[in-house]
Design a protein around this nucleic acid. Structure first.
Lengths: 129, 129
DNA sequence: CCCAATTTGTACGTATGTATA
DNA sequence: TTATACATACGTACAAATTGG
């Protein structure tokens, strides 16, 4: 339930509520969220507040949004494993716009970087044998 | 220069312009950006449009914002290197709110995950000897 | 220590554009 | 075609944190 006197911002409270539903499995991977308009009325806040909450959930990689369609809970796909060669270093960062477009990377999905190659972190993992 | 007829949204054009200034070094790491109010007047758009652009740049890990203070170009610190043990697997994702709070992780910074431990990707990297 | 100015954060409203069903 | 839904963009107002006098 949204409280206007809890000290926590409304969009965070909404984001927390939806995140909890996702992590608990109440909202299954791949399932559609209610529309922003519905959520705004349900929680009795403005649509902009819902959009703020959705933007944060997208940034966490929990949901994906597409114009003209309701937002969807992101579904996890099995990651392809790549074995590191001796001397290789792996780190991570957010993708550049060019990398997002090139690999079709969703919001809230980082890339793993090895050398000068970037691998979408929702589809790859690196291991040492 | 912002064009209202290019087909590209205004906030993306603003974000592209600022990103280019950061990547070119014109805006140095650690330096302060102009205020949102100034940027809105400079580009002749609403403050909300500037805030959309800033939110995306934060999501890319390029800038960090703090209430009461101007936004700042993120400064890169040297990463601590951790050597992987045989059989260990590393991947990356965005941090949970709890992880962000616990480790003081900024917006747009993923975590590297090894086992059930999460390492902020702006401070750690993993390597194979 | 307090006060005022500045700046970003939050939240509301409205309107229009564009993609999907 | 029509209705629905998210994206973009403008506006306003106030809250909260920081800075500096």
């Amino acid at each position: 339930m949204i409280s206007r006197s809890s000290g926590l911002s409304l969009y965070r409270q909404v984001a927390d509520a939806i995140r909890q539903q996702i992590l608990s499995g109440e909202l299954a991977p791949g399932s559609l969220l209610p529309s922003e308009k519905y959520l705004a009325e349900e929680h009795d806040v403005g649509r902009d507040t819902i959009r703020d909450a959705m933007a944060h959930l997208r940034g966490e990689g929990l949901v994906e949004s597409k114009r003209g369609y309701r937002s969807r809970v992101r579904a996890l796909v099995p990651r392809e494993r790549i074995w590191l060669h001796p001397g290789e270093i792996v780190t991570a960062r957010m993708p550049t716009p060019a990398e997002k477009k090139e690999h079709g990377i969703h919001e809230g999905v980082p890339v793993l970087v090895v050398g000068d190659k970037a691998y979408p972190a929702d589809r790859y993992e690196f291991g040492r044998e």
